[in-house]
Simulated scan of single mutants.
Amino acid sequence: MPLDAATALAAAPVSREIAWGPDDVQLYHLGLGAGVPATDPRELRYTLETRLHVLPSFATVAGGGPPGVIRALSVPGAGVDPARVLHAGQSLTLHRPVPVRGAATAVSRVTAAYDKGTAALLVLRTEAADADGPLWTEEALVHMRGEGGWGGDRGPSGRPAPPAGPPDAVVERTVREDQALLYRLTGDRNPLHADPGFAARAGFGRPVLHGLCTYGMALKAAVDTLLDGEAGRVRSYTARFTGVVYPGETLRVRMWRQQEQEGPQGRIRMTVTVAGREDVPVLAGTTVGYR
């Protein structure tokens, strides 16, 4: 059925109880390619329960179940064909570090619907809080092909200027051939990432890597390279998904550190491209805020 933007915006918030533990955190980290080399002390912070810390992007899968881009399709008025839906971007604000073990209430609602002409863009905001207060706020941008043209607001169109000067660091991260299959176990069972026939119907030559997997891999690269492996320093993270990654490809992550004018806080600007496809961009507008 076609998108009904007014109904989606008017829909009541949906609340769900989520819980997670060390096994969930370790599985998520392994799904991002952590643990190579397996005995590296820096990697053991992601894989060994006695040293475990949580990469903040784990918040996007905490509690299991479908990610925001899929949950959006269950909102009244937004139940369109999943084959025409893409995850267009993700933002995350951390109110405090994500604990290794926790339970929280996550409340989601559509906060904006934009008419892009040939497509629609929905914003699904989720706020998670536990007994001690807010934990994180995330926003998923949901691109719906063929669902525009109703005369609505086009939404913001400004994009940040690309970072100037040479990057402070450049790293490459190889995506394993089975990485999408492993990452699916964190909760995103969209067949686009495993079923060749479904991927072909969606216009892709073969199954693609989850955008949120690329998102997590890039954050891990920034934390490991410019934040001394201290995941708790991350206070925000945002990116737009501009291209697909196929399992077996190599990501090239360029990073620029930018200190804020006042206080100890700063930002890391990043570009993420596919090294073997002439540096085609796959993440843009990518920024990590840190303390």
Results as ranks from 00 to 15, higher is better:
228 D>N: 12
251 L>A: 09
276 G>Y: 07
38 A>Y: 08
85 V>G: 07
102 G>D: 00
10 A>E: 10
147 E>C: 05
16 R>E: 15
47 T>R: 02
54 V>I: 02
287 T>S: 09
168 D>Y: 01
20 W>E: 01
98 V>Y: 06
254 R>A: 15
186 T>A: 10
55 L>S: 08
257 R>A: 13
187 G>V: 05
109 R>V: 00
274 V>D: 11
134 P>H: 05
176 R>N: 04
51 R>Y: 11
24 D>T: 01
19 A>E: 13
179 Q>D: 12
211 G>D: 04
189 R>A: 13
133 G>L: 12
161 A>G: 13
163 P>R: 04
7 T>E: 14
245 V>A: 11
55 L>R: 02
153 D>K: 10
113 A>P: 00
276 G>K: 04
189 R>L: 15
159 R>D: 12
269 R>I: 00
208 V>W: 00
121 L>W: 04
155 G>E: 08
125 R>P: 01
16 R>N: 05
191 P>T: 05
66 P>M: 07
226 L>V: 09
117 G>Y: 05
138 E>Q: 15
240 R>E: 13
166 P>M: 12
249 E>M: 07
208 V>D: 03
259 Q>H: 13
123 V>M: 10
167 P>K: 11
124 L>T: 07
43 E>I: 03
29 H>K: 01
194 A>W: 03
20 W>G: 07
144 M>Q: 15
226 L>S: 04
92 L>Q: 10
189 R>S: 06
95 H>N: 12
69 V>C: 00
287 T>F: 06
246 Y>Q: 07
203 G>V: 04
99 P>H: 03
218 A>V: 06
253 V>F: 05
88 A>K: 12
200 A>N: 04
60 T>I: 13
61 V>M: 02
48 L>C: 11
171 V>G: 05
117 G>N: 01
167 P>N: 12
17 E>W: 01
21 G>N: 06
88 A>W: 02
270 M>C: 14
225 T>H: 09
183 Y>T: 11
82 P>K: 00
274 V>F: 06
250 T>M: 09
31 G>H: 07
262 E>G: 08
291 R>Q: 13
281 P>G: 11
190 N>I: 11
265 Q>P: 05
280 V>H: 13
59 A>V: 08
78 A>F: 04
206 R>Q: 14
119 A>N: 03
68 G>I: 08
255 M>D: 08
217 M>T: 09
262 E>W: 06
108 S>L: 01
253 V>P: 00
120 A>T: 01
246 Y>C: 07
11 A>Y: 01
113 A>E: 03
277 R>D: 15
265 Q>N: 15
261 Q>L: 14
5 A>Q: 07
284 A>Y: 02
14 V>S: 08
254 R>L: 08
156 P>T: 02
19 A>K: 12
64 G>A: 02
74 S>D: 15
129 A>W: 04
107 V>H: 03
217 M>P: 00
101 R>G: 02
202 A>K: 02
181 L>V: 12
215 Y>N: 13
94 L>E: 08
71 R>D: 13
25 V>K: 02
27 L>G: 01
245 V>S: 09
287 T>M: 14
108 S>I: 03
159 R>V: 13
132 D>V: 12
